[in-house]
Each structure stands twice: as C-alpha cells, then as structure tokens.
Design a protein around this nucleic acid. Structure first.
Length: 293
DNA sequence: GTGATTTGACCGGG
DNA sequence: CCCGGTCAAATCAC
C-alpha cells in the first residue's frame, strides 16, 4: 500500500477541513438575517463533521465507573473525595445557552445524571462529552431542560466548556486553509433517533425525543478506482463532473468520503456552486471538481 | 460480558 | 436546611 496516511486519518483531515469551512460559512451568514435556512444548513454541516470526527476518534475502551471494587474501603474514600466541581462558578462559566426544538447538537454525550428541578415540571438532564474519559479527554458538558411554556417542546441547552475532541484534528490541518471544501458528510446527517429498539431510551425519548444516543461510525470507503468516483456526485441524475475533474483523473486512487446527496443543498444553492470533496488517496492531493447542473 | 442509562445518595454552596 | 450538581451501584439491552 502506498498510503502513509491511514484512511481514518485522511477522513479525519477532510472532515476537519469541512467542518472549518462550514463554520466559516456559518459565520458569514450570521451577518445576514434572511438566510435562516442556509444557516440551518451550515449548522447541519457542522453537526455532520463533528459527529464524523467524534466517531473517528473512537470511543473510550471502557467506562471508568466501577473501577473501585464493590464494598471496598476505597469506595467510601471516593465518596468523601468525589466532588471536585465548583458549583457556583460553573453556572456563570456557561460557554453558551441554546434553545432548540431538539437537543441534538451532533456530539456524542453520556448522560450522568438527571434531577428534578424545583419549580419545573421537567427534569434537568446532565451530560458530559462521551470522550471525556479519554486521557486528556474532552471536558465539554451540557445541561438539557425542557422549557415550560412552549407547546412544541423547546429545550434549553446549556453548555460548559468547549469540546476538545475535535479541535486537535482541526488544528492539524489548519495548513489546508487554501482548500475550499464543503464536506457534507451526509451519511447519518439526520439525527440518529433513539427508536432503534433500545427500550431503555424510552423514558428519555419521551422527554427529549431527539437525543443522540449513539453515533454509528461511517465505514471507511475502500480505495476506489478513478471511474468509481463519478458515482458520488449526487442522487440527482443531471449532475455530472466538470472538465476539471477529468483532467485530474491521472491519479488512480481517488477517494471520497461519504455518500453525498445534494438534494437538500439544492434548495439553497445553485448546484453549479457546489464543490465535491474528493482527495487522492495516494498522492494526498485534494481535488475539487465543480459539479454542473 | 460489555457498555450505556437510571436513580438514589452524597456533597457543597448559599 | 434546601437545592442543584455529581457520583456510582444497580439495572438493562445488546
């Protein structure tokens, strides 16, 4: 194999870049109020990238709960030591508060507590980033509480600390700034629903139906021959690759990431403006053929 | 057997 | 003492 860079690393590269591009797009759209739909799309792009990156970085091998032996003296010691948080400061240190109709933000969270809050009909749910258990793991936490007065359920998401589980990949590829990629990572772009047969999620689902219980890893595509890549362009028959794509076909190991569908993108963009994220698996060049309608 | 969630208990700030 | 936040054993699904 010619690859010095593993497929997973390469996917991580492009997803990180795609996320960066989407973040830039979202930032640009912040200054204009009449692009709510596009902003939503940008947010979804970010969500896709974050989930893919999180999945790529892998889950911790095992939970660190119950590490202490049951009924051991250490258990009691732990009970006396366990609280290290700084309650009063954390509320003020909330990095941001969001109000959404679902609580899916694209990250993978582990629920560590639930509490009935005085004066509220709905319990507050406590989550930490699923990767917080890794060495030097992600410190991100969030609280989710259903808002009282909204008929279509509205959830208040309060975030503490920033995710570090994706930033590493982003930083590693900051050098690719000049590459213009919109990486939609559309596999699993819709929020996974907890209706996959896991009965334990029922109660949680009733309260907060859109929680992401699990992110399924997107299987890495095999190295594809050049001719194969044309198939990725879209589910739309009219779309085809431009000449720039053909000229770049000298590389034999073009790789693509995810089954991209531009159906919903087409609601906001002219298809001509969309660039397909493709990278040569062997020479690591990024190819960005424009797609014509 | 492993891993995720539930839930009662514990802890500290106000 | 009350309340919110966290812990970790118990429980459950796969």
């Amino acid at each position: 194999m010619a690859a010095l860079v593993t497929p997973a690393a390469r996917v991580s590269e492009l997803m990180a870049q795609g996320r960066k591009s989407a973040a830039a797009l979202e930032a640009l759209l912040q200054v204009q109020d009449d692009h709510a739909g596009i902003r939503e799309l940008a947010a979804e792009i970010l969500s896709c990238c974050d989930r893919a990156l999180a999945a790529l970085h892998g889950k911790p091998a095992g939970r660190k709960k119950r590490k202490l032996g049951p009924q051991s003296a250490a258990t009691e010691t732990t009970r006396h030591k366990r609280r290290t948080r700084t309650t009063s400061g954390e509320t003020a240190a909330a990095t941001r508060v969001e109000r959404k109709q679902n609580w899916d933000d694209g990250f993978v969270w582990t629920k560590y507590g639930q509490k009935d809050i005085r004066g509220s009909n709905h319990p507050r749910h406590y989550f930490r980033c699923a990767y917080t258990l890794d060495a030097g793991g992600c410190p991100a936490r969030r609280q989710v509480q259903r808002s009282e007065e909204h008929d279509p359920p509205l959830y208040v998401l309060t975030y503490f600390a920033d995710h570090t589980c994706c930033h590493g990949a982003e930083a590693a590829f900051a050098a690719l700034d000049d590459v213009k990629i919109l990486d939609f990572g559309c596999v699993g772009s819709r929020s996974p629903r907890p209706d996959d047969g896991d009965a334990r999620k029922t109660s949680l689902s009733e309260e907060l139906p859109a929680e992401v219980a699990k992110v399924e890893s997107t299987p890495l595509p095999d190295m594809r021959p050049a001719g194969k890549v044309a198939e990725l362009s879209s589910s739309t028959d009219e779309i085809h690759c431009s000449s720039s794509w053909e000229s770049a076909a000298v590389c034999s190991d073009w790789d693509f990431f995810g089954n991209c569908s531009f159906d919903y993108v087409g609601e906001f963009f002219d298809v001509e403006d969309i660039f397909v994220p493709i990278a040569c698996f062997t020479c690591a060049n990024a190819l960005l053929p424009s797609v014509k309608h």
